[in-house]
């Protein structure tokens, strides 16, 4: 059996629609990851132990367990406790919470990188805690971690095929649906792989540019 180019070409539109769905889920998930990750990072610096420790435990736990099982858990268990969400919302939350545990480490490194003198200066100017964070610390901490955050956008996108298990019509779901009719899995999965590769490279491009720019500035 050889590669059937006709079949590969014919499946492209359906696969592209799957890719659009995957990108939508990834974008939603990434927004959640960026916001929630910052929240985790701030809570882990809290002066109160009963805030700091449970958040640290949650972050470590979520980061060391498979996203796949987390997706199953959210998709099948949330409805039993009365939380009815669409598959897309569940998927975005699953991806978002999982990657928030990674972005929180990135933010943490960024915050730790702000020199102690900046904190002391804020204190000397008797800035409030809120102003110290929003005007002094975060504006210095966040820009330098943008490339690292960007890398997790790529990683998050590459985890979207797992959304197939919670009935989201992303690329792999299309592969399975079309493949069950024509059995041309070789062509379907190969084209799907090429699509992922191209998309990942396209997302990676601005991240690499930012990385280089930052490295030049810090050099």
């Amino acid at each position: 059996m050889t590669f059937d180019w006709q079949a590969a070409w014919g499946a492209a539109p359906a696969l592209l629609r799957g890719l659009a769905t995957a990108l939508q889920a990834a974008a939603l998930g990434y927004v959640i990851a960026l916001v929630l990750g910052l929240g985790f990072a701030l809570l882990r610096r809290s002066g109160r132990r009963w805030v700091r420790l449970p958040v640290a435990f949650f972050v470590e736990f979520v980061r060391s367990t498979p996203l796949l099982v987390q997706l199953f858990f959210l998709f099948f268990v949330l409805p039993t406790v009365g939380i009815e969400l669409s598959a897309m919302a569940t998927g975005a939350i699953g991806l978002g919470v999982h990657y928030a545990t990674y972005t929180s480490e990135v933010y943490r490194a960024g915050i730790d990188g702000v020199p102690a003198g900046q904190w002391e200066a804020a204190k000397a100017l008797s800035l409030s805690r809120g102003r110290t964070w929003t005007r002094v610390v975060l504006p210095q901490a966040v820009p330098r971690v943008v490339p690292a955050l960007g890398n997790y956008a790529i990683a998050l996108f590459k985890d979207t095929p797992q959304l197939t298990v919670i009935t989201i019509a992303e690329v792999l779901s299309v592969v399975k649906a079309v493949g069950s009719q024509n059995f041309q899995y070789l062509e379907l999965i190969t084209v799907a792989g090429v699509l992922y590769l191209i998309t990942a490279l396209v997302i990676a491009w601005p991240v690499r540019v930012l990385e280089r720019r930052y490295r030049r500035e810090s050099a």
Partner: peptide, 13 residues
């Protein structure tokens, strides 16, 4: 750049 799941599917299916 390739999701692990896609590589796995490619090898198996």
């Amino acid at each position: 750049g390739l999701p692990a799941l896609v590589v796995l599917f490619w090898l198996v299916f």
